[in-house]
Design a protein around this nucleic acid. Structure first.
Lengths: 270, 270
DNA sequence: CCATTATGTATCAAATAATGGGATTTATGT
DNA sequence: ACATAAATCCCATTATTTGATACATAATGG
């Protein structure tokens, strides 16, 4: 017998469903997918019994799902089953799985140790987009307009350069085609050649610095989050007023950021 | 840009969709899932751009999918992404993934070696259901009514006993509650106690024999298909006329069947 | 061999459920 | 603070889904 599914399947449950802004056709179709996931070797007949959806409707939904490639039918046995297409979706889930959540605790640790502004971001086309941040607790602090969800350029930020350094060749070439080098400060990298030199250095050292390249007076150290396949899937940075930067602090920063980078990357790999 | 999806998303593509018996709402919803699978970190706005579905509709579908637990939205960044619920479905795919297809080549090999009738079956409630078969090439051969998709009892068939032997305790107890021991032949096991003794033996030896327990004159050797978690997910058998059975042939049969069992089980584990 | 049951396809009128336009609220950035 | 954009809500329209009926085929069982 089926339990929770019943709620979704009952055609007359208008009172419940109409309250929530939910499409019942979709609910039914996905309910069928779940049903086929839970019970193996179901025939059309049994599916109809289990769901209380009308025969016609069930057949139509099943054939829709077959057309869309989500289920298939073994002609000999008459069994319906989930098709491998679901696996394609599933693989994307793992990649997308909340970097933010996994990285969260480590970002917190880092924030406790060095009480400066921290950002976590991922690539979004030719820009970066912030996923999360922590603010410095000091009076003089970096308060970027970088709310989570906002965008920033790649070539002139610590995080951006880390993400560029982690790009595949081809993707990077595409990036170079579209990027326009705007000089936000006198330290902003001015062309592709400068950028490439910088990226080589970043690849070698495993972290990036932003030496007031995006905003005057703001220094920043960034490092990547790397998944099990070696892909850079995100990056984070510590930003602070340049006036606070000393050789000692810088060394400490880099040390901590690199450690956090390793820890988060390990955590991402489940 | 999106390509194939466009076809599904275009609202006016009645000419195309009306031909196929396909539900467009479902197509759109699943299209959104695919979109979120391919492109990470999509905001509602971008999704709307990409799909050409009206704003309202897109939002409604997204909220439906959220309600159903298939996607989720990061409130800070506004990104939509596939939720882990997809993984649940995916794991079922792996289990369900065509045992028949994977086992096929090995069944063929087995059939070439010992040219007798072979069946492949899985559990279906309190019975077994045939997925596939090969027929003996000899004149005197076992021709069961067992078309793919047909059912047979467990306690008196080789495959059935293998499946019972691989059951979890609890499931087996449930089975004992409902089973009625019908004596098809004089060799049919007559009660739970006889069955349990037999199953212990099968568990120990790793294969089962059917000594004319279901049909007079039919002898059969069966073995399990075991997945990576040690679960018996299917079983197969070689059936032949008892008259052909000799000690030498029997030894050969068991040898070949056990080998095939190992090979198929290994192949199932991807 | 015929009667019966299960599966799938097709048709179609009715009604509901999805749609999309627009208004409203909420964010965002200057 | 304002202007602009994004997201949510609302609701009449209609287009899509629905389910009853009927038909075709195949499998099943006596």
């Amino acid at each position: 017998m089926v339990f929770s599914l019943f709620v979704l399947f009952l055609p007359e449950s208008t009172d419940i469903l109409s309250l929530m802004d939910t499409a019942q056709t979709v609910a039914r179709a996905l309910g069928l997918l779940e049903l086929l996931g839970k019970h193996k070797n179901l025939t059309a007949g049994r599916i109809i019994e289990m769901t209380d959806i009308h025969r016609s409707t069930t057949y139509r939904l099943l054939s829709t799902l077959i057309t869309l490639g989500y289920i298939r039918k073994d002609e000999d046995s008459g069994f319906y089953s989930l098709s491998p297409k679901i696996l394609t979706l599933a693989s994307s889930v793992r990649e997308t799985r909340d970097i933010k959540e996994i990285a969260g605790p480590y970002i917190d640790d880092l924030h406790k140790t060095i009480q400066e502004t921290i950002h976590l971001a991922v690539l979004d086309n030719d820009e970066l987009v912030y996923l999360d941040k922590r603010e410095s607790t000091k009076n003089l602090r970096v308060v970027m307009s970088s709310k989570a969800g906002s965008h920033a350029p790649l070539y002139c930020t610590g995080i951006g350069k880390v993400l560029l350094a982690g790009m595949a060749e081809e993707q990077f070439r595409d990036y170079l085609k579209t990027v326009r080098f705007i000089s936000y400060t006198e330290h902003t990298l001015r062309d592709a050649s400068e950028l490439i030199t910088e990226l080589d250095d970043i690849k070698f050292r495993g972290f990036a610095e932003d030496r007031e390249e995006h905003e005057d007076g703001v220094y920043c150290v960034a490092a990547p989050v790397i998944d099990t396949e070696g892909q850079t899937i995100a990056a984070f940075s510590v930003s602070l007023p340049s006036v606070r930067k000393s050789d000692k602090l810088k060394a400490e920063l880099i040390e901590n950021v690199k450690t956090a980078s390793r820890k988060i990357s390990a955590a991402i790999g489940l």
